[in-house]
Amino acid sequence: MSAEAIIEAKAVSKWYGQFHALKDINLTVHKGERIVICGPSGSGKSTLIRCFNRLEAHQEGDIVVNGVALHGKMENVAAVRSNVGMVFQHFNLFPHMTVLMNCMAGPMWVKGVSAAEARKTALQFLERVRIPEQANKFPVQLSGGQQQRVAIARSLCMKPDVMLFDEPTSALDPEMVSEVLETMTGLARDGMTMVCVTHEMGFARAVADRVIFMDAGQIVEEATPDEFFSRPRHDRTKLFLSQILKH
């Protein structure tokens, strides 16, 4: 794939105090590419994608998103962040606003879009995640799966260039996982650039262009889903896959 790079991480290192959480990460995400990151708990997956919109700060190396280098003195943080959507494990919807308002808030407050237009966009994306009828409810009135789909719609309303997912289905009951995965698959089909931290290997196999395996703060293996699942090169990957595919 030779399309332009949306996220470029070069020799990135991050510490939490003394703890070396990310070690020399090199990763390029191209436009339209779908990347799945997996790895054992504590391997630094969340930390890595949270560096991509600078919810976390890295200490060494460079991260360039959409041509803007992320660093502490960056002035256009808001501009960068509003072009990078993020979906969280625990949804993090705004509980004091209706579903519709959750989706309208970003475009109105950050991009200065008019209320009428924000409303139109919001309804359009709620339609896309197939819950337009819930628009006037509050988040607590929805099931987990519905809440996560609202969260996806909320991010989409900002018309981001890339979407980051941090274990979007791991807080959901099994029967709700598929509705969220379907939404994500639909997004992928429409050509959205995506970086997903997930343990849903079926999703990875079906959707990902590349699977990245992390362990102990490092990228251990990087391969197409086919290679990754049928011919993993590293022992740690094999161990991880055997554990995760056991059940």
Binding site: N53, L55, A78, R81, N92, G106, W109, V110, S155
Partner: peptide
């Protein structure tokens, strides 16, 4: 207020004052 609210707001590009006032 849960940290997730700050994170969600930041991830959408809300600044400090906006996050404080609206969220």
């Amino acid at each position: 207020i849960d940290r997730g609210q700050w994170e969600a707001s930041r991830s959408m590009g809300f600044g400090f004052a906006l996050t404080m006032r609206r969220i």
